[in-house]
Design a protein around this nucleic acid. Structure first.
Lengths: 151, 151
DNA sequence: CACAATTCAATTGCACACAACTAAGTTGTA
DNA sequence: TACAACTTAGTTGTGTGCAATTGAATTGTG
């Protein structure tokens, strides 16, 4: 027989799996659009953060993107090699590395402006649905963070 | 000034980013729970599929998990090395590889039964919210797939 | 001032995830 | 039957993502 508990467990697995699958489907949607910009999706997220905030340290970028230096260091080196950002030690605190957009990196913003519209269309969702989805995801992330830090 | 279009674009980026972040937060929630089972999260998903469906070819498993052989082949080799599954060529169609649970893999199901409950608690969401979230994600994935295949 | 604790970035090792390709087997068709 | 087209797994190369560690710089405390 099927108990209510079984149903919850099945549901949990379905949600986990759906989240995993959707995240990858989103990546896949972006990939061809970002090929024109020669950016991967995580690189695009880093550029978005820099376009919005101007200049950030690696630490700050890690807080915004929720990524650690193990992920960011090589990613930023690739962006630097592509001529989009500069990395330099802070004079005020030699531990920190400041990431700045180059003129080329700044210029890429114009080319990238066309991307979100096309992705938005691809989702097939209206503004209200998107707002709700975002809220669900943020609430979920916050709950998971809280449960994780409570260990 | 801020146009309605700007708002949509910002929202798009927020949704993408939230999805990315939530997916990783979910992984992080699972990681310590799965350490007891010596499974990574994708390996756990593969085991879930096998526990549910019994025996699957690599192809079928790829359809269920939405993963290709480039991801599955090494993953399944690790599960085989851990003694959880057997891989053997199909006699009926030598192209196919059939993945079967070993007794040890079947036995792990009992130990894994405790995992979803704890994750479910960590999400802090009720059954109804979970159902809604899952529906949103599935609709989103379907829309992204449709847009992708229409290229 | 001295020195332990902390902070920050980078590196190493491991495991996905996907693109592009290869190799082997099967199917369809002239 | 021959042989082209297709299917299925596997391999290689690149790029995340995270754990654990390292090394350098800063901060806090006696």
């Amino acid at each position: 027989m099927t108990t209510a508990s079984d149903e919850l467990l099945r549901l949990d697995n379905q949600v986990c799996f759906a989240l995993h699958a959707t995240s990858r489907a989103f990546d896949a949607m972006y990939r061809p659009l970002l090929r024109d910009l020669d950016l991967t999706y995580p690189q695009y997220l880093a550029m978005l953060a820099l376009w919005e905030h101007g200049t950030l340290t690696v630490k700050e970028l890690g807080l915004v993107l929720r990524l650690d230096s193990g992920t960011l260091s090589p990613l930023l080196k690739r962006l630097e090699a592509a001529g989009l950002v500069r990395r330099e030690r802070s004079a005020r605190d030699e531990r920190s590395v400041i990431v700045t957009l180059t003129a080329q990196g700044e210029a890429l913003k114009r080319k990238a402006a066309a991307v979100p519209r096309r992705v938005l269309d691809a989702t097939g969702l209206g503004p209200q649905e998107l707002v709700e989805l975002r809220r669900s995801l943020e609430r979920l992330t916050a709950a998971l963070d809280a449960a994780g830090s409570a260990d």
